[in-house]
Nucleic acid binder design. Structure first.
Lengths: 238, 238
DNA sequence: CGACTTATTGAAGACCGTCAATTACTGTGG
DNA sequence: CCACAGTAATTGACGGTCTTCAATAAGTCG
């Protein structure tokens, strides 16, 4: 049991997400409950896993935001993807796996060991689907960076985050908490914070979104998605 | 057995790569031999799998180049990654999996069904490592597009391709065949073909590489890698 | 309150895109 | 063997998006 932090209902979002991916049976829920007993708190800005180090234990993000990130020798930084409650961390199934990217906490987070799942079990299916969605998010990120302009990149990322947070029950209608600075957004979108700031102002002026520090509200997600040709990630038929 | 095309030694590169990832036993090699009996030829520019369609059978690329690609509604195109002999196509392990990207043949290619691998078998390990490397390549692509300039993007991608082709035995020292047009390169690097052309000329002038249609020779791969801070993808300890 | 981070604004310029034309190629058929 | 079409590579002029470099305002926390 973690100290100084009650096992609140927040981690429920992680289970909500996994349930949305594949219907979990009692055994799976028990395994998750069990794993949560060994939850571990990681402070904002601390590494959860480190690039190039051996992965000793796959983990499940229970609450808070994390991000996969790469640092270049000269100090440039690139966020590869964001991880939300219910996302897997370091889940690969070969021996002596090295982390291919650092995972850093973007807020104070709670993680727990990822319960083992027998081949074919509901939990196993949920993991596979989760990994496939992760891959989908990476592909979306590549397309964003390669072929969208600044305005489109911002909208596209916010739409993705909104969809994902809706899936795990963290969004409130069209609004959601976004614990990211404009500089962080810039390092995710391949832009400078100055330009992100200008484009965000433009988006606000045009009525596409409302922005308070730590909170975003999209005026019309569906309309915005149509406007920029955004498609949600889908990895299974029904 | 495929018709009109002898089962040449070319597919051997695919086995070479898988062997390099994990030492395969006789059973694995037999399974691969068996699968190659059902090899299928796909013409350049044809889809091997199509985004959004259900994946009926994972495949192994035996010879030729393929690429994962996304097309935007307005005609913009983004290549997500390139696939070389020995790479897996559509290998995901959840039911009713949908392809998250189209895979298109960049040259005439040979593919075969991916042999089943029992959990824990050498083949299974090779697949897992291959998938992890694929992910590494996607992360590298994100970093390229997000934080490298045009010159660095070109060098970084060529270095990656050189490393991968060396792994499966397709490179000849510092040179390798590159069946890509400058426009294709542009759509992979988030640039225009005009700018790729100019940057390639600059790289040639500065002595970094030689470029003939369909063939590249890097003057000093290790030096170039140091110069732009390129790191090869590594996913296992030793 | 004071130190720190984050957001905002302005001016200047670099990098890369767009448009359009020209020059190689490559393969095909007469 | 050459004419031809189609694709790919190359070049030039110009413009826009985004960056860089400051500086200032606003917010946060002990």
């Amino acid at each position: 049991m973690i100290r100084g932090q009650r096992r609140s209902d927040a981690p429920g979002m992680a289970v909500t997400r996994l349930m949305a991916l594949a219907p979990l049976d009692g055994a799976a829920l028990d395994a998750l409950d069990q794993a949560m007993e060994d939850a571990r708190a990681v402070r904002v800005r601390r590494d959860i896993i480190t690039e190039g180090r051996e992965i000793v234990q796959a983990q499940l993000l229970l609450s808070g935001w994390a991000a996969r990130v790469r640092l270049l020798p000269d100090g440039r930084r690139q966020f590869l993807s964001f991880l939300l409650p219910g996302d897997l961390i370091g889940a690969c199934d070969h021996p002596h796996a090295l982390a291919v990217s650092t995972v850093v906490a973007m807020s104070d987070v709670l993680v727990c060991p990822l319960p083992q799942a027998a081949a074919g079990s509901p939990l196993h299916v949920a993991y596979a689907i989760s990994r496939a969605m992760d891959e989908g998010h990476l592909l979306a990120q590549i397309t964003r960076l390669g072929r969208l302009n600044a305005q489109e990149r911002i909208s596209d990322l916010l739409l993705e985050l909104h969809e994902r947070l809706t899936l795990n029950g963290s969004a409130t209608g069209n609004g959601f908490d976004l614990p990211l600075t404009q500089e962080t957004l810039a390092d995710a979108l391949g832009l400078t914070s100055v330009h992100v700031n200008r484009m965000l102002q433009q988006a606000r002026r045009e009525g596409d979104l409302q922005w308070r520090v730590g909170h975003v509200k999209l005026t019309d997600p569906a309309g915005l998605a149509r406007k920029i040709g955004h498609l949600p990630v889908r990895v299974t038929a029904q």
